[in-house]
Design a protein around this nucleic acid. Structure first.
Lengths: 253, 253
DNA sequence: CGTCTTATTGAATTGTCTCAACATGCGTGG
DNA sequence: CCACGCATGTTGAGACAATTCAATAAGACG
C-alpha cells in the first residue's frame, strides 16, 4: 500500500477523532522530527512498511510496555497522559515521570535493550509508535534518523539533570509549584491549553514522584488555592497567577 | 603527522605518567567504544586531524567547560575526578554530578548546542577530548560513531532516571550509603581500586548533590564508621563491609 | 608556621511524615 | 437513574528526621 505525500499523512493525524481528550498537532509532537524524516524517506521507499504506527488508542490503566520488556519501539503520546514507574515487590512503586501530550516515551530502553520502567495510561489516550527494531532489521540505517534520536536523547538527559537539580533541595511548596509550572509549560510547548488543564495523576502519584507524602501534596495545593494562586476542582487545575507559581518554584521548568 | 596502529595508540595512553593519580586503562574508558571507531577510521584517513585529543592534564580547580559555552567536545576522564554544577547568582551552586575515572563528560551539551553546566576538576586530573564539531566540519559523519553516541546518551538517561528514583525518597543514611556504593561500583567497573579510594569532593559538595546539609553527611559518615561499615581518614574511605553498605542503600525494610 | 578553608560535633528549631478520622467522587450494579 | 461501596482526597495532631546556627577541631596551602 503506497502512502501519500508528507502533507497528506500529517493532515490525516487530525482526521478520525474519538472519545479521548484533545490530540496534539503533529508539528507540536516530540516524535515529529523523526516522523518527518520517515515520511520523507518513505516516499523514496527507504523505510519498510509497518515501522511507523500512527495513533493507536490506549485506554486508562493499560500499559504500553513494562519494565524489562525487550526494547522495540519509541512512543509518542498523541492524546492523554502516562506515568512511568518502577514496580516493586512490596507494591511501593516508584514513579519516575509523567508523559504528557506530544512527549516521547521509551527512549531510555534504547541503550540497555530493555525498558527500565513500566508505562501506564492515566486516562484514555492514544500513541504513535516507531518500531525501531523493524527499522534496524531492514538493514538500512538512516543517518538523519540517528541524528534525530541523538537530539531526543540529549534533550532527555538535559531534562533529567534539570529535574534532579531543581528537585533534590526544595521544600514541599517549591516542589509542588515547580510541578505545576512544569506541567503548564510542557502543555504550552505542545500547543495545548496551559492555564487550565487536567492532572490525570493522583495526589499520591505526584507525591511519590516529588518525594513527598500524598497528604503533603494535598495540603500544599489547598494552601495555594487559599493564597489565590490556583483554583482546584477535583483533578482540574486553573493557574490564576502563573508568575507567582513560577516564582515560588525558583528552579523552574 | 601519521598516527600509529590502533594497538600502538592504545598502549601510548599509559606511557608518560605524571604527578596525577592512577589513570584508567583505555579499554576501561567510557569513551573507548568511540575511540576505537575513530582509531579504526583514522587508519583509513576517514577522520581529520585533531579530532581526538589524548590526555590533556587539568589541574585542580580548573574548568574544562562552563555553563552555556557552545558545545564542541565530549570529554573522558582519564585520571582524577570532576564535579559538574550549575552556578547560581547567589553562590548556592547546584551540584548535578560527579565524574570519575573512565567516565564521560559533556554529552548533555550535544542536543541544545551548549553545555548545561560547568565541569570543574576536583583534583589534578587528565582528560581525553573528542572534538565533535571538527568531526562534523569534515562533512563525513560516521554512522558507527552516531550509534556509539546513541548508546552513551541512552545509558546516561537510564542512569539519571535511576538516580532520581533512588534519591528522592530515601533517608540521609540511605543516600550516603548509596553514594558510597555508587562510587565504589563505578570505580570497580573501570578497573580501579574500589575498596579504598579518595573522595575528591567536599562534604558540602556531597550534601549539595544528595540534597542534604554538609553537616548531615559528616554525621552519617562518622556513624557508619562507628558501626564498622567504613573507615575514614580525611577524604580517604575504606569500605569494610560492602554488603552492609549496599544493603543499607536499597532500603532494607 | 600561620592563615583559611573544610570537617566535626552539639543543641534548638522546623518541616514533613505517619497515623487516623472523615469527606468526596467515581464506577458498578441493581 | 439512584444507591451503594471503594478508592481517592482532605484535614488534624503528634513524632521524628534533618536543618540551622554555632563553637571547636583539623587539614591544606602558601
Amino acid at each position: 500500500m503506497k502512502k501519500g505525500s508528507l502533507a497528506t499523512i500529517r493532515t490525516a493525524c487530525k482526521a478520525d477523532k474519538q472519545a479521548v481528550s484533545a490530540e496534539v498537532e503533529c508539528q507540536n509532537c516530540g516524535l515529529d522530527p523523526i516522523c518527518s524524516i520517515l515520511d520523507y524517506a518513505e516516499e523514496r521507499s527507504g523505510v519498510p512498511e509497518g515501522v511507523l504506527l500512527r495513533r493507536r488508542p490506549v485506554s486508562r490503566g493499560e500499559t504500553i510496555f513494562r519494565k524489562d520488556d525487550p526494547f522495540h519501539s519509541l512512543f509518542a503520546v498523541k492524546a492523554g497522559s502516562f506515568k512511568t514507574y518502577i514496580p516493586r515487590f512490596d507494591h511501593t512503586d516508584q514513579v519516575v515521570g509523567f508523559h504528557l501530550v506530544g512527549e516521547m516515551l521509551g527512549s531510555e530502553g534504547m541503550a540497555n535493550g530493555s525498558y527500565p520502567y513500566t508505562a501506564r495510561a492515566l486516562e484514555n489516550s492514544s500513541v504513535c509508535e516507531l518500531r525501531l527494531e523493524k527499522l534496524e532489521d531492514s538493514g538500512k540505517p538512516i543517518e538523519e534518523l540517528q541524528q534525530g534520536i541523538i537530539e531526543l536523547l540529549g534533550k532527555e538527559v538535559a531534562f533529567s539533570h534539570e529535574l534532579i537539580a531543581s528537585m533534590v533541595h526544595q521544600t514541599s511548596e517549591q516542589r509542588v509549584a515547580g510541578f505545576l509550572s512544569s506541567l503548564s509549560h510542557r502543555l504550552h510547548r505542545r500547543g495545548m491549553p496551559s492555564q487550565e488543564f487536567n492532572m490525570g495523576m493522583s495526589r499520591s502519584d505526584i507525591g511519590n514522584f516529588l518525594g513527598l507524602a500524598g497528604e503533603t501534596v494535598s495540603r500544599v495545593l489547598t494552601k495555594f488555592q487559599k493564597q489565590g494562586l490556583i483554583r482546584l476542582k477535583h483533578k482540574r487545575v486553573t493557574i490564576l497567577d502563573a508568575a507567582a507559581v513560577q516564582q515560588m518554584a525558583t528552579g523552574l521548568d
